[in-house]
Write a protein that binds this DNA or RNA. Structure first.
Lengths: 144, 144
DNA sequence: GTCCATGCAAAAGTTTTGCAGGGTA
DNA sequence: TACCCTGCAAAACTTTTGCATGGAC
């Protein structure tokens, strides 16, 4: 996302473009393949802006989530993680290995069928989903 | 689950059958249609056993999860919730309404296909999954 | 009797909030 | 200038841990 678009989207919400918000977005974009916790995000942003406070990071990820820029994820930990929103093409899932705890991302759109079925049967209009599969990754399967 | 089976499964893990564990299991069974947080579970058990401590409830749900009696769920809150494990037939998902925040449960086994696909393509052996759909429930759709 | 389990309280960890000062528009 | 945003510190909240007592087997 470029600076102009970002600023515009902030403006829509009556928010300002600050150094910190831009810095946090940059780190998120540079780590778009990761699932950062708020602490990890804080550490990365702090490298560039050492004066930033943890509370600002918490407030910013809340804002970004409301704006639909990032999605909140829940794995089996005491904290939340975030990833850049996959927007319309939200057809990806997470695989968590129960042995090494690594998180893999996979592309898959078979869920559309299930969503159609749910909409049909339960009159529930699906707008988003979170799917996590647990099991053993290839490497760990070999080491059993 | 009857007392004898429960005791036996505890024994397998080298654990004892205590009043508190039995009480917590009873509350979970009586509320098998709900997704209780640890605090809610604590409050319900406390009605029957006022002397019980919160730490015991936390320790017990951890134990029950290890035993496969209950599953840990993550919704969009600061705490975990639990439900009785659906064992083999784990083909149910959660629908969360973004407006009223109610949680609905649905039965669906189309996921088997996706799991097969993942196993095939990513060499990832799926043993369990968590699926949550977000959207608008029937009632809230009508009130838009 | 042995050892596990419990309750309490303290600690640890994550997230939120209050407030005065500073920055953006 | 007006108002939003930030950093800091304190508070709130969930979960874990230590320890002495009590209970199951």
């Amino acid at each position: 996302m470029n600076a102009a678009t970002f600023k515009e989207r902030l403006k829509e919400k009556g928010c300002k473009l600050t150094t910190q918000r831009r810095g946090i977005l940059d780190v998120l974009i540079e780590n778009c393949d990761k699932h950062l916790s708020t602490e990890e995000l804080y550490a990365l942003v702090k490298e560039r802006y050492p004066e930033i406070g943890l509370a600002t990071v918490y407030r910013t990820v809340q804002l970004f989530e409301e704006m639909g820029i990032i999605d909140k994820l829940y794995f089996d930990e005491g904290c939340s993680r975030y990833e850049l929103s996959h927007q319309e093409e939200h057809h990806h899932h997470h695989l968590i290995c129960s042995k090494c705890n690594k998180v893999f991302e996979v592309e898959n759109d078979l869920l559309a069928e299930i969503e159609a079925h749910i909409q049909d049967k339960y009159r529930f209009k699906v707008t988003n989903h979170k799917v996590t599969f647990y099991g053993h990754c290839e490497a760990c399967s070999k080491n059993i």
